[in-house]
Structure formats: structure tokens, C-alpha cells
Design a binder for these strands. Structure first.
Lengths: 142, 142
DNA sequence: TTTACATCCTCTAGCTACTGTAGGTTCAAG
DNA sequence: CTTGAACCTACAGTAGCTAGAGGATGTAAA
């Protein structure tokens, strides 16, 4: 039986985060000691590892909820899990494209900085100059 | 003189966002009509364009505040603006590295999906299997 | 001039995914 | 039996907006 602190260490999660996951229904309510402290078993360790791993891969909590649901019902079709992963991959590729464009622009800003006064600073100039925008009014959710 | 709605359209910002920027002190309090509606001039249009451009480049509102401050004092050294841009570039490159690793892993998950039942699903398996982690307990803020 | 209606106003609450704090209790070691 | 780390609940705060309620204003046509 693990305390919440031990579980936290084993999974690289903060204690509060585990309690938060319980609150939003992502983790089950665990057993308690007589004094009211949470005690966890291996099932919870596995579940939390799954959640953290998915988070590291950039899945949203909602997506993880779906994945956990699929994983709890082994008879269901794999297609759904695959669809979720594909959606995720698409998002990642979009972010990559934007970040790459971004890196180019930032590099240019940095390399062209003359080192003088801000009145001549390329960094500020680039930000002021709207004509050099990649695309107008498009957001980067980096 | 521009209404807030016109300013919003010209800069690709939502009306609420402009009011929010005013609230947090990123945009100045504009003049008002007798009836109390906001009216903007070219200075505000420029400032908001600067802000939105910087946001598109992934700068935080705090960083933008610094940049605006530098830009308001043209005598200051360019070095600070350069430092902010360099910090930003570094962050972008870190994110890129993580996202690339992520893409590789997601691609593997998707390609190995057998199409059968969830009990054999590689997607879920990969998420359960902690040994295939890139690095332990490291977060991706994608 | 009146009426219609888009746009504006303030205020409040909600979103994601946590993180931090205050004030108090429990557990395990010595 | 005492100490002190770790636990508990409850609430507030973070970034960067976004949405909605309920009402006022501005403008253009009838």
C-alpha cells in the first residue's frame, strides 16, 4: 500500500496533482486509513503512470479520459484509440510547422541586432513591422 | 477615430481581448465618447499590432511588456531586447526538440495499430509501457 | 423623428491543467 | 510519548483569454 507521496514520487507527479485528478474523476477514489489518509495499490500506480505518460505525449485530459475508457473495455475496437492518436499526431505536426517558421523569424531578429540603441533595434523593428508577418491574423498556440 | 470593433478587425483580435489588455495595463485607457464608448487612434493601433505580432511569435505577455517598455525608451540599449528574443528562441528550440521526439513516438503508435480489438492495441500498449519513455518524469509543455 | 438593430458597456464566471497556501491532523520512528 | 514529516481539506491563484447576462449607445433608414 502506497501513500500519496510515494505514488507521487514513483510517477513524477505532484501530490496536489493526484488529488486534482481524483477530483475531476480521472483517478478513482482510493481506500483510506482510519485517520483518513489515502492508500494506493498497483492498479492506481498503473493508471497514474498511463495518465502521466499520455500527458508527456501532449494528450489533453479529455483525450486521456477517452483512452482510459477504451483501455477499460478491452472488447472495443482499436480504431477509436488509433483515431485519437492520429488526431494528436496531426496537432503535433501543425505545431511543429509553426514553431519552425517561428524559429526562422526569431533567428533573423537575433542575428540582425546591431547592438546599438533600441531606436535601431531590429528585434523591436521586426515586431513593429506588420508587413513581415508570415500570415495575417493567424495564431500560434505554441 | 476607431471603435473597439474596428480596431479588433484590423488587428485580428477579439473585442474582449482588447478590453482584457487594457485591464492588465498592456494597452492604455483610450478616450471615450460622451456615452462612454472607447475610441482609438493610430498610436493604439500600432501598439496593439505590436502586441499581436509578438504574441504570434510566442512571446508571453510579460515579455511583451518588457519589449514595449524598451520600445517606449529609444535611448536604452538594444541588448535587453536582444536578450528577450534570444530567450524566446531558446524556448522555441527546446519545444521543437520535444515535439520532434513526440512525433516519432506517435507515428510509431499509429503505424503499429493492428486494427483489431483494444486488447491488442499498440496505442494503448505504448501508453501503458513505461519502459519506452524518452526520459523519465520530464514534462512536455506542448 | 422614430425605430430598429448592430455594436458597445460592465461585470461575472468559465476554460485548461495544474500549483500554492493556510490551518489543522495523522503516522511512524526513536 | 514526543517529534516532525507527511498528510488532510478548502480555497485562491496562474496564463491568456473567452463567453454570457443584461442593459446602454450610436447610426442609418423609414
Amino acid at each position: 500500500m502506497l501513500t500519496i507521496g510515494t505514488l507521487a514520487k514513483k510517477t513524477g507527479t505532484k501530490v496536489q496533482t493526484i488529488r486534482y485528478y481524483e477530483q475531476i474523476g480521472l483517478m478513482p477514489e482510493p481506500g483510506r486509513t482510519e485517520g483518513g489518509q489515502r492508500r494506493y495499490g498497483d492498479a492506481e500506480l498503473d493508471r497514474l503512470s498511463f495518465v502521466r505518460h499520455a500527458r508527456q505525449l501532449g494528450f489533453s485530459l479529455d483525450a486521456i479520459r477517452e483512452l482510459l475508457d477504451l483501455s477499460d473495455h478491452p472488447g472495443k475496437s482499436c480504431a477509436e484509440a488509433d483515431a485519437i492518436a492520429r488526431r494528436q499526431l496531426k496537432q503535433v505536426e501543425q505545431r511543429l510547422a509553426r514553431l519552425e517558421a517561428l524559429r526562422t523569424e526569431l533567428k533573423r531578429m537575433v542575428h540582425e541586432c546591431s547592438g546599438g540603441q533600441t531606436s535601431d533595434c531590429r528585434v523591436l523593428e521586426v515586431l513593429r513591422d506588420h508587413s513581415e508577418c508570415l500570415t495575417d491574423h493567424e495564431e500560434i498556440s505554441a
